[in-house]
Design a protein around this nucleic acid. Sequence first.
DNA 1: GCTGCTTGCCAC
DNA 2: AAACGTGGCAAGCAGC
Length: 560
Amino acid sequence: MPTRAGALVTDPTAVAGGGQLIGWDDLAPWVRTRESSGDGVRWVWPDTASFYPRLLAAGVRVERCHDLRLCHAILQLATSDPWPAPAWLAPPPAQSAAPSLLDDLTPDETPALSEVVAEYERQLSALTTSSAPSRLRLLLAAESAGALIAAEMHADGLPWDRDRHDAVLTAELGPRPAPGLRPARLEQLAAQVRELLASPGLNPDSQAALLKALRNAGLDLQSTAKWELRDKPHPVVAPLLEYKRLARLLSANGWTWLDTWVTPGVDGRPGRFRTDYVPGGVVTGRWATSGGGALQIPKAVRAAVVADPGWVLVVADAAQVEPRALAGMAADEALASAGRDGDLYAGLVASGVVDTRDRAKVGMLSALYGGTAGEAGAILPRLRRAYPRATGLVDRAAQVGESGGTVRTWLGRTSPPPGPSWRQVQGRAGESDAVQTDERRARSQARDRGRFTRNFVVQGTAAEWALCWMAETRRRLRELPPVTPGEPAPPVGQPGEGRPHLVFFLHDEIVVHAPEHLAGQVVDIVRESARSAGRLLFGTFPITFPLHVATVTSYDRADA
DNA sequence: GCTGCTTGCCAC
DNA sequence: AAACGTGGCAAGCAGC
């Protein structure tokens, strides 16, 4: 079934098949040919998430694109003259599990070439009339590059050893039980808890029943949360906390998870964990994920993340990205200087601003999150004195949010405005017959929003740095040679086209899967890309983004 | 049996 | 002492 190639535009040469129909079978080779022509094609298409997986399945990768759906979302909030998304741009599609070139778009999802071009031109025009076009252009490019990376990481998968995972579970829980039964260790702990609470038949998984049993045993508790249980002097606390820890491991990352999310290994190579990354899935611009809980892989099971034979994992995480991003935005030389040599929190101590690293961290995070309670609140005045520019910036962002305004990240991602119910509550408090409850609710809600906008500018700018870091890393990795027969065996299905490739991303951390003999080059690339991202965002302002980089065979060893 | 809500906990 | 940002997700449970 032929598909209109009009869904595809190339830039700057604008070919697009001149509106002729190109079937999916012909499309992939056509894209491949254009891509290798060396003329720097940027593909403009409605939606990377629905389109690119088909190309990947056909073995075709592209260097650059402009994702109209993601860019529309950014521009909508950024422009003073928003326009509605065309119908063919509206649905945020779920990535299909097994993309196929035979899966065709339904006709009404396939826009005419002219419509795609019109939307693209509208976006370019919105860009040029924005207050900081070059930054916004960078954001759109980075967002689009992220979309490519997300699809590629899904296609390549995170190498995951089922046997090692099983070994972790067995060591903690006992052997895998028959369906519907608790593992031995968990059953043992449950029995102990029932005994100590004199509650035969208690199901410790039921919070309501558990809370009742705990209270009957004389414990003064408002909930069954572990922070509340932790300090109670009662013999049930230790086994119960251990039960909760193991029950969590079982339900979140147990054997069922393994069967659901990790494909079997082949030929002595580990299997693959595939989540759906959702670029721009968080209001601040962070990525979300869908499936398998990829944002929360606990330390305990990271031992199961292993490189293919002859390959390694280059694990890089960036230290204190948010305060560094803040220093860059605020042009706060003092804060930038505190982070110059590595650990920014240690730098705060060395500068005499606070006396311990822990306090520096707590205080700084409070400034970024809007915390006021306890020790953090006491440190804030010192931070304000030492770093008036940085703290002033987040304080102003909070004020704008409290009064119902919108704020922007460094590259120009705009926070959503408050919704009608927010405005209604604020309006109610201003009416002449407003009671104390109305005023209290309005104040509390305003402060909530202030904390949101305060954090938005920092978290969002940090996400922009991370996106640029990852996009730069990808660009440079693509220039490395693919492994050839005779060298270490290429992994199953040639992930990353046999080249070092990104396999994991988590806010301020990336993992590259690479042939062992290229590990050194990959480390250099990751580091140089971090410097490059810093320059892209902040030019010559002297803010550094130091990394912890480890070359390992399994993910859990990266912490050392 | 399904849906939506709450609780609790994991990650940054 | 659980306030202080962004998420995903499993389990229990009420209601349909």
